[in-house]
């Protein structure tokens, strides 16, 4: 289990990570979300002892990372998929990491097979695509068979098949009882992968909830209605639900409405409906709304 308590990292006067507290529990995939520059990578680097926190602590199984006897058997991490020496082969890269922990040479073959790189084990990394480098990074993280995994933007550069592969891998690893923390700036991807979400913006914690709870709280429900006679529906909604939004083709979106009551209301006024459906805001929209104040660099619209 990974426990982050009041973690802060300041560069000069700017706080990249600001009083962050959360836990990464075993047995589930925790999505670590935030816009670019929110402090996700810095947080992960502090967990691994690469960057020194200004204050606060990050503990792995109750101890700082640097105090672990064989750290790669506790925590496997993928930080930057491009941080590989292009002159090494895939197997060569894993071999030196394995050597640092006295892991048997067969582990290298095992993890290469697991990530689907067995056939290119002897190829130099300079010939690898970004997707293949991501897979190699995942292989390196799994080398020590760790109980916790930290993956920074692992779906970057992966194609559709690769994204599905990593999603299933993460779910399987969590299913085996491991603690899995996956950072991403893609909310939609996390919605289908993560059980739990930790959302940060400008280094601060914005949300720490299960994906379902997060959606229920931040994703608004809306009811879409469409009538045979759009003008009659418009007249009815104008008085009963002034917040209804026309969405083309004679249909309206009614935020936070009850579909049963809306249907009854239409029947009462003899408005014949041809569509009545409930939709939730996508997680992406919830995320955008939540982090809109916390986005570091916003494009200025002229």
């Amino acid at each position: 289990m990974i426990e982050i308590r009041d973690l802060t990292k300041a560069y000069g006067g700017r706080r990249a990570v600001d009083g962050l507290t959360f836990r990464v529990e075993p047995g589930r995939v925790t999505g670590f979300l935030g816009p670019n520059g929110a402090g996700k990578s810095t947080t992960l680097r502090m967990v691994l002892g690469l960057d020194r926190p200004t204050s606060g602590t990050a503990l792995v199984d109750g101890r700082p990372y640097a105090a672990l006897d064989r750290p790669l058997c506790r925590v496997g991490a993928l930080l930057d998929a491009q941080a590989l020496h292009p002159g090494r082969t895939a197997a060569g890269h894993l071999r030196w990491i394995a050597a640092s922990h006295g892991l048997p040479a067969r582990r290298v073959g095992e993890v290469l097979t697991l990530v689907g790189l067995a056939e290119v084990a002897g190829h130099r990394i300079r010939t690898f695509s970004l997707g293949m480098r991501q897979r190699l990074g995942v292989a390196a993280a799994l080398l020590g068979d760790p109980a916790a995994l930290l993956l920074d933007e692992p779906v970057n550069g992966l194609d559709a098949e690769g994204i599905r592969w990593i999603r299933e891998l993460l779910r399987r690893l969590a299913g085996e009882g491991r603690a899995v923390l996956v950072s991403s700036h893609l909310m939609a991807e996390m919605a289908v992968t993560a059980d739990h979400l930790v959302v940060i913006g400008r280094g601060r914690l914005l949300a720490d909830a299960s994906t379902a709870d997060f959606l229920a709280r931040h994703g608004r429900r809306r009811v879409r209605v469409r009538a045979v006679d759009p003008a009659a529906l418009a007249a009815l909604l104008a008085t009963a639900h002034p917040d209804a939004v026309p969405c083309g083709d004679g249909a309206f979106d009614v935020p936070d409405a009850d579909p049963g009551r809306l249907g009854a209301l239409a029947a009462e006024h003899r408005v014949v409906l041809i569509e009545l459906s409930v939709a939730h805001d996508s997680l992406e929209e919830a995320f955008m709304r939540m982090t809109s104040d916390a986005v570091e660099y916003r494009a200025v619209t002229a």
Binding site: A66, P71, A77, D80, A83, L84
Partner: peptide
């Protein structure tokens, strides 16, 4: 130098934090 140039230093220090 090759550790700094390629970025493998992070992996090296994750493997040997001391």
């Amino acid at each position: 130098g090759q550790e700094y140039a390629s970025g493998t230093l992070a992996t090296s220090l994750a493997a040997v934090p001391d």
